[in-house]
């Protein structure tokens, strides 16, 4: 055999060496996205106007780039639940997340909450409203039966988790049977416009968006009536992957938490429409977890894509 297949013996040895090399390469620890690209990629969840939103966050990203000495890129999600998937697919280094997706990321991906912006009203937290048209005659959950309900996105606390929890508390077991129709508008503003336009009877959205639109057009406040309000949860939280180097995470946290102490930081905060950043930690999202448990959609079981 040996005389018959000497070349085959050498070929086999070569193949074995190649396989061992590949295994060795795979055994080496993976470098982080930032280390590989020398950039930091942060995701953004869509709000009222994704274009204005991107512009606001770009100012903050440029500031971080300058302070960190590395490039900071942004990527916006077309919907809220997409961010968890993008964390995996696009190797995001972090994202500014709404409370529900933040809680999901912390639970499912081990994301680390770093900081939350305090808005111009001095609030770092937001809540969810369940509202109807004032002339709809709906006063309570019971009046909602058979109506048309519009949610924001299954991955939002204000636009889905809270109304599910509220409805569950009010005894609603199945949305399909309770409402004549329910849908997801994709954004809080779309929900509000859908209710205002009469394309839906009941809506659920974030208070900051609601209050802003009513502030811009007070007639909207007269046309709408809030049925229920959720507890306050961190509105937006920058969560970073645990794979990101600890010193970089700490540096990012340090920069954000002290932005208001520098003149340029103040200017950036103003353009970002925030007063400052406050420290954030996983305990801030305990209520979200409880709400999910209560609504029957525990975070562990929640599909990352919603």
């Amino acid at each position: 055999m040996k005389r018959m297949f000497p070349g085959a013996q050498r070929s086999l040895a070569g193949h074995i060496a190649l396989v061992l090399f590949c295994l060795l390469a795979l055994a080496l620890p993976k470098s982080t996205a930032a280390q590989q690209r020398e950039t930091l990629l942060l995701g953004i969840e869509p709000e009222h106007n994704i274009f204005d939103q991107v512009e606001r966050y770009r100012v903050l990203a440029e500031y971080l780039s300058d302070q960190l000495g590395i490039r900071v890129d942004l990527t916006i999600m077309s919907r809220y639940g997409e961010v968890i998937k993008r964390f995996r697919d696009r190797q995001l280094d972090g994202a500014f997340l709404s409370p529900y997706t933040a809680a999901l990321g912390i639970r499912q991906l081990g994301l680390l909450p770093v900081a939350s912006p305090v808005n111009l009203n001095g609030e770092a937290a937001s809540r969810g409203y369940i509202f109807v048209r004032a002339d709809s005659g709906i006063q309570s959950a019971a009046d909602m039966r058979g109506k048309n309900m519009v949610f924001v996105d299954p991955a939002t606390m204000e636009g889905y988790l809270y109304p599910r929890t509220y409805l569950h508390e009010q005894g609603v077991k199945s949305l399909d049977t309770f409402f004549s129709r329910y849908s997801f508008a994709g954004s809080h503003a779309s929900v509000i416009f859908a209710v205002l336009d009469g394309r839906a009877d009941i809506g659920a959205a974030k208070d900051t968006v609601y209050d802003k639109m009513v502030g811009q057009d007070p007639s909207m406040g007269q046309e709408l009536r809030i049925i229920a309000r959720s507890p306050k949860e961190p509105e937006v939280t920058l969560c970073l992957t645990k794979e990101l180097r600890a010193e970089l995470r700490e540096k990012i946290s340090e920069i954000l938490l002290h932005m208001e102490t520098t003149s340029r930081g103040k200017r950036v905060l103003k353009q970002f429409e925030a007063l400052r950043f406050i420290e954030s930690n996983p305990a801030d999202f305990a209520t979200i977890e409880e709400m999910a448990e209560e609504a029957g959609i525990p975070l562990d079981a929640r599909d990352a894509d919603g």
Partner: peptide
């Protein structure tokens, strides 16, 4: 923005 972020209906 409405169009892009809309996911239902």
């Amino acid at each position: 923005s409405y169009f892009i972020t809309s996911t239902a209906d």
